[in-house]
Design a protein around this nucleic acid. Structure first.
Length: 439
RNA sequence: CGGGGUGUAGCUCAGUCUGGUAGAGUGCUUGCUUUGGGAGCAAGAUGCCGCAAGUUCGAAUCUUGCCACCCCGACCA
C-alpha cells in the first residue's frame, strides 16, 4: 500500500478525550474515530489489525474443534424472558422496539440464541459434543464507557458455546478452550495468565479470566512470576488428547484478581522473589455453567439409557476489539505503538526519504514491488513529506520493520533496516534487506 | 446513577469574569528555499462560537432550558 493513497489520518496532537495510551495512539494513528460515547468507527489500519486478531482467534478455535457460525445482533425479548434474564439484565441491555411494537434487544451475549438453535436441532447424546462459536458485534450500554475500545459500548467479541452430555465431558470441552486460549494470546505476542474467576452460584473451579499485565489495567492482579516465563507455543497440542495435565500446569500456580485475592494464601504459596503484583486487563473469560440455560430453554438430549437430560454448557468469550487496545497497552513506547508481527497491519514500513529523487524513487519502487510480490505486506511512505514526519508517523503506527532509503545511503547502494521494537538499525544492500524481510 | 468539568477552525486551545467586526499554534492550499528525526519565508482558505428560547441597539460572552462529550466514584468483556 502506498501511503499517499492510504486513508490513515494521523494526528500530531492527542485529542483531549483520550486518557490511556492505547486510546491516544489509536486516535493519533488514525485507527479509529469515535462516533459517540463508547462507539467507534474502525478506519482502514485499525480494521486491519482487528481482522488479524480475529483470524488468529478463528484459527485456534477451529483447531480446538469449535465450528464458526453467525448469530444476529438483534434478538427477541421473548427468548430472554424464557431464560429469565430479560428482567435481570438491567439497563446494560439496549432495548429496542420495532414498528409492530415488538420488544427486541441488541444482544449483549448469545446464550439464549445458541441454546435455542442447539435445542431445536440436537436431540440425542449421539450428536454430542458440539462447540459452536461466532465473532459478532455486541452492545452493552455501559454507564460510563471509557478507555477507547477497551471499554466501549459496542464491541466485537468471539463467543463460543460448548454442549456436552455430562459435567465430565463438559470439563474436557472447557479444557480444550482453556488451552486454545493460551495459544491464541501467545500467538498475538501476549502473555495471558489464567486466573480463577468467581463462579457465582454454580461454584467449582470451572471459570477463568485470562489476564494480561499492563500498567493501565483496570484491576489489580497477583500471580507467580513463572507465568511470565512460559511459552505455550513450544509444544504441539493434540486437542483430542487429555488436556488436563496442561490445564493443571497452568492452574497450579497462584494467580488471582483482586476480587479473588487472598493475601495469606499468596504469601504462603509464592516465594517472595517470585511474587508479582501488577495491574491487569481481562482479554477473555471462560465459564462452565451446566444446565443454567439448557433447562429453562428446553435444550434436552436423550441419554444412552433413554432418559432426557438438559445439556451441559459452557461459554467462552474473547474480546476481539478490546484486544486491539490491550495489545497496545502491553506493547508501546513513548513514540508510539509496537505491533507484534502476527497482528501488525503491515510487516514493513518502507520510507522514501526523498520522494521525487530518481535514485530514491527507483530503489523504493523496486523494493516495494519485490516485497509485495514475495507476499510481504508493505506500507510504502511515498509522500513528499520531510524525513522527520515520516519517521515520526512510522514510529507512531508501529510496524515491526522500517526499511529506510535515502540519497546518502543509496550512493553506496545501502538501505537501512530498523527493528521497531529493539530500535536496532543495520545498513544493508537492497538485496540483503529484501532477503531478510522476505524470509 | 451520584459528584465534577468541557463544548469556539481537522487537532490543541485563548477569548466569556467586564457584551461592541472571530483569534493563536498546528494542520490544510499555493509559490520559493530547504530536505537523514514533526523545516524557513511569503501568500491564502477554513467557523450556525453545541442547539433553542430570552434579555439587549448589539450576545461566543448575560439568563433559562435542552443536547453532547470528558473525568472521579459505584458497575462491567
Amino acid at each position: 500500500m502506498r501511503l499517499s493513497q492510504y486513508f490513515m489520518p494521523t494526528l500530531k496532537e492527542t485529542p483531549s478525550e483520550a486518557q490511556i495510551v492505547s486510546h491516544r495512539y489509536m486516535l493519533r494513528a488514525g485507527m479509529i474515530r469515535q462516533a459517540s460515547a463508547g462507539i467507534y468507527s474502525w478506519l482502514p489500519m485499525g480494521f486491519k489489525v482487528m481482522k488479524n486478531i480475529e483470524q488468529i482467534v478463528r484459527e485456534e478455535q477451529n483447531a480446538a474443534g469449535a465450528q464458526e457460525m453467525l448469530m444476529p445482533t438483534i434478538q427477541s425479548a421473548d427468548l430472554w424472558r424464557q431464560s429469565g434474564r430479560y428482567d435481570d439484565y438491567g439497563q446494560e441491555m439496549l432495548r429496542i422496539t420495532d414498528r409492530h411494537d415488538r420488544e427486541m434487544l441488541y444482544g449483549p451475549t448469545n446464550e439464549e440464541v445458541i441454546t435455542e438453535i442447539f435445542g431445536a436441532a440436537i436431540k440425542s447424546y449421539r450428536h454430542l459434543p458440539k462447540n459452536l462459536y461466532h465473532i459478532q458485534w455486541k452492545f452493552r450500554d455501559e454507564v460510563r464507557p471509557r478507555f477507547g475500545v477497551m471499554r466501549g459500548r459496542e464491541f466485537l467479541m468471539k463467543d463460543a458455546y460448548s454442549f456436552d452430555l455430562d459435567a465430565e465431558a463438559g470439563r474436557r470441552a472447557y479444557n480444550r478452550m482453556f488451552v486454545a486460549y493460551l495459544r491464541t494470546y501467545a500467538r498475538m505476542g501476549l502473555q495471558a495468565i489464567p486466573m480463577r474467576a468467581d463462579t457465582g452460584p454454580i461454584g467449582g473451579d470451572m471459570s477463568h479470566e485470562f489476564i494480561i499485565l499492563a500498567d493501565t489495567g483496570e484491576s489489580e492482579v497477583f500471580c507467580h512470576r513463572d507465568f511470565l516465563e512460559r511459552d505455550v507455543l513450544q509444544r504441539d497440542i493434540d486437542f483430542d488428547s487429555d488436556l488436563q495435565p496442561i490445564v493443571d500446569e497452568w492452574t497450579s500456580l497462584y494467580a488471582a484478581t483482586d476480587e479473588m485475592h487472598d493475601a495469606a494464601a499468596f504469601e504462603s504459596a509464592v516465594p517472595e522473589d517470585r511474587r508479582v503484583s501488577a495491574r491487569g486487563i481481562e482479554v477473555g473469560h471462560i465459564f462452565f455453567f451446566g444446565d443454567n440455560y439448557s433447562k429453562p430453554l428446553g435444550a434436552l438430549v436423550t441419554t444412552p439409557d433413554g432418559d432426557e437430560v438438559a445439556v451441559q454448557m459452557g461459554s467462552y468469550g474473547i474480546g476481539v476489539s478490546r484486544l486491539v487496545g490491550a495489545i497496545i497497552e502491553a506493547s508501546h513506547d513513548e513514540k508510539g505503538i509496537i505491533w507484534p508481527e502476527s497482528v501488525a497491519p503491515f510487516k514493513v514500513g518502507l520510507i522514501n526519504l526523498r520522494s521525487g529523487d530518481d535514485a530514491c524513487d527507483a530503489a523504493c519502487g523496486e523494493m516495494y514491488t519485490k516485497l509485495s510480490d514475495a507476499g510481504v505486506e508493505v506500507l510504502y511512505d511515498d509522500r513528499s513529506e520531510r524525513a522527520g514526519s515520516k519517521f515520526a508517523d512510522m514510529d507512531l503506527i508501529g510496524l515491526p520493520w522500517q526499511l529506510v532509503a535515502g540519497p546518502r545511503g543509496l550512493k553506496d547502494g545501502k538501505v537501512e533496516l530498523k527493528n521497531r521494537r529493539s530500535g536496532e538499525t543495520e545498513e544493508l544492500t537492497i538485496d540483503a534487506a529484501l532477503t531478510r524481510l522476505a524470509s
